[in-house]
Design a protein around this nucleic acid. Sequence first.
DNA 1: CGATGGCTTGAGAACACTCAATTGCTGTGG
DNA 2: CCACAGCAATTGAGTGTTCTCAAGCCATCG
Lengths: 243, 243
Amino acid sequence: MPPTAVNHPLICKLEHSAALSQVERSALEALTLSRRPVSARHDIAVHDNTDRVYLVMSGIAGRYKTLRQGNRRIVSFAVPGDLCRMHICGPSTRDMRLGALTHCTVVDIPRTRLTELIETHPGIAHVMRWLAMMELNRAREWLVNDSRPADRRLAHHFCELLVCLQVVGLANENSFELAISQADLADAMGISQVHINRVLQGLRAGDLIVWSKSALTIPDVERLQAFAEFDPGYLDLRPAKAA
Amino acid sequence: MPPTAVNHPLICKLEHSAALSQVERSALEALTLSRRPVSARHDIAVHDNTDRVYLVMSGIAGRYKTLRQGNRRIVSFAVPGDLCRMHICGPSTRDMRLGALTHCTVVDIPRTRLTELIETHPGIAHVMRWLAMMELNRAREWLVNDSRPADRRLAHHFCELLVCLQVVGLANENSFELAISQADLADAMGISQVHINRVLQGLRAGDLIVWSKSALTIPDVERLQAFAEFDPGYLDLRPAKAA
DNA sequence: CGATGGCTTGAGAACACTCAATTGCTGTGG
DNA sequence: CCACAGCAATTGAGTGTTCTCAAGCCATCG
């Protein structure tokens, strides 16, 4: 197999939906040559610039909005392979921001070039539709998750991260690197920093997770999934990559 | 102007994104001839049937999921003109349900016929992409909303409902019919029935809303929007319908 | 008249918040 | 090597929100 499919998180992820032709893979790869570092706690997207799409190549970013009261709500994580600001029209989402939670490497993609690719390559158009749908499923799953008690909610996030990082080869069977802060996690769950600390301690005490030195390990994945009521179906990933 | 555009909620809503040709309007209309009543508290969608899309013509429905613990979380409302179960692939969303909150009239649309329309009419394809994007924006806005205190959160839902119903001509400047129960509202907000009752009393006491006899009136729309921190930008509706 | 479904109220417990202080780690400059 | 600043994690204490359980009320409908 070509090394590009393995190393390139976007292609890696998209091919969990449907296989791409070699031409399509190359076209996508050509889009993502020039990379740019973004340090933690800095915004990736220029606020009112809507003619660019951003691809995360490494690190973890977050789509978020800051409320008048001052608290920030992260509405989704963007891990390597995730395209951001795809779905924008007019001045609509001008107050939804995109920031790096850890140090990130990103690619700026002109929206027009991506549109061209979609119009000329049916395979790319197909996987992009799949992407939009999966993002919607994911957002609604986060809403459902918001109704769960905090400990199960947090567990659910960990389960989702595990699967999403496995897709791009950044997690093994039961662990992955997670360098974000507790404050970021709190903002993603909609609870306070003090409280997430105590919830984390609860999960640790129950041997559901081990999180030290930026490495998160899940001793018993099935047990954590059962605890979180996690069912990966909504991510709609094919069981395995059939080269 | 033709009466169909005024009376048909789906066309009415889609034309807030971009104008459709007369041929496209007729094609959509032809899809939605046979209507079916669904009484309150009954599911609209057959659980594991994924080859149909549902269009709400009257009443209010909700997309929801029931958690193990027994509580139900509504992740979005479907008002007249809303297409449901558009975005499904594989067995993914098998546990996300679609139920009528009030008495509803719905149209069952074979997914294949809608796909045909999208493939043959570029205008329809365009507005469908807009629709998917708006649903994602909306879901993320609900997530942000979940971080607000309960009274502001409820106010935000009312503001959104007002705009969405105005789009299809089911709300006037500051009021609309709202026949759903407090329990439904509670499930949409992720709080208990007892609590929503008290939050409602708070909004009523502050003269922010009047809700009696299934009619919701907002005495001062700007004041409620300010209270809820509501900005309709995420719905991406054009200011007015230009015939 | 009784049944039903929805709304309202009370009371105590559980959960999550804020404020504030402490600890530990890490990189930097002297 | 130490002092220091900055950031993240932790802990305590008191407060406020939201929950559950339970009962009562009020329409509507047969």
